[in-house]
Amino acid sequence: MDRTQARKPRHIVEPTEAQRQRVKEMPARAVEYLRQGGDSFLATRADALVNWSRKYSMFLYPFVTACCGMEFMSVAGPRYDLDRFGCALPRFSPRQADLLMVVGTITHRNAPILKKVYDQMAEPKWVMAFGACTCSGGPYNNYATVQGIDTIVPVDIYIPGCPPRPEAVMEGLMKLQARIQAEKVPADGRHKESVDSAYPVIEKPIA
């Protein structure tokens, strides 16, 4: 068989000359349509549309370990109502979640579980550090406590407070939404990897 003469796949149909002409005229026709007061037509960039839908339909994974959980319940409940921001549906499978909300102190014993949950989430994904303990270890600095979850997973938004007020959480969520709106689609090859075992070990002299 002569492979130099590759057959054209049958399902590709060449457009006719009239159709090509129509496509060429489309932008002008759209402008003319809008000028005439048309309202069932919207032109936008793919980035803007995809990011808009992502930021208002976040499924969150509540990784709740400590007292901040009470404040999380408050902000997720009907009084403050995260649903107004399209961020209400907790998914208890990381496969279905977009936003990892780390709420409460993370201990060294718990850290591998947090990392595993993060690694199981599908891209695109974001991480919120909820409360002082997740930001920096908070009041705890001892043998048991992770000094900020950004030593384990990359964090997109930090919400300080012990615990943070619901207003602070909503402010943080809106900041995260603004950040999502500014992202590139598709992501330009950036993958948010968690800290792997090859993380450089920095030894401090033991007192």
């Binding site: 060294h108 014993r109 591998p112 043998y143 075992s197």
Partner: peptide
């Protein structure tokens, strides 16, 4: 409460205050 990999007994007064034994992430 602690994990099997942990060495020493942290509530003993001679356990170094700065000593950290994380399972993932940086050592200190």
């Amino acid at each position: 409460l602690l994990y099997e990999e942990f060495e020493g007994y942290p509530l003993r007064k001679d356990y170094p205050k700065e000593r950290r034994q994380p399972l993932v992430g940086p050592r200190n």
